[in-house]
Amino acid sequence: MPRLLKTHYSAVVTVNGHVHRLTVPGHERLLTTLRERLHLFSARYGCGTGHCGACVVLVNEEPVPSCLLLTVRQQKNRIQTLEGLKKDSLLAQLMTSFAEEHAAQCGYCTPGLLLSARHLLKTCPSATESQLREELSSHICRCTGYYAPLRAIAKVRDSYAVD
């Protein structure tokens, strides 16, 4: 039977390996759940329309805008935020490279950029310049002009050895 009367739903969501049992309104976006219920603040609110990439998280390893996703639809998915990747060596290399290349200024876009960059280098370790640009096109950065993040990611690509 379709659930015709409910407006709140029990949702079991797995974030950074932890299983959370929540009751959320049907319209709640994953971004709101992460920030306001789970206090994971790396994903940021930028536009709320899928255009800026500030809210990117990994869903089943793929970077997606959490502002467009309904929390109730995430029950079978594995969600990761930057907080859950503290021990990830590729992410650590990217963060170092971002610092060295001054690729983060205000830092608002940085968590999203890092997750997209990590995804690209994992799935395509020898990504070309145009693939890097294509992946970064998901993100708006008002500070760096994009060259510094591109340089930082290319530097890791050139040194990153796949396991």
Partner: peptide
């Protein structure tokens, strides 16, 4: 069409 993150949704 759009960007990679949009196309994944």
């Amino acid at each position: 069409m759009g960007t990679p993150i949009f196309r994944r949704v």
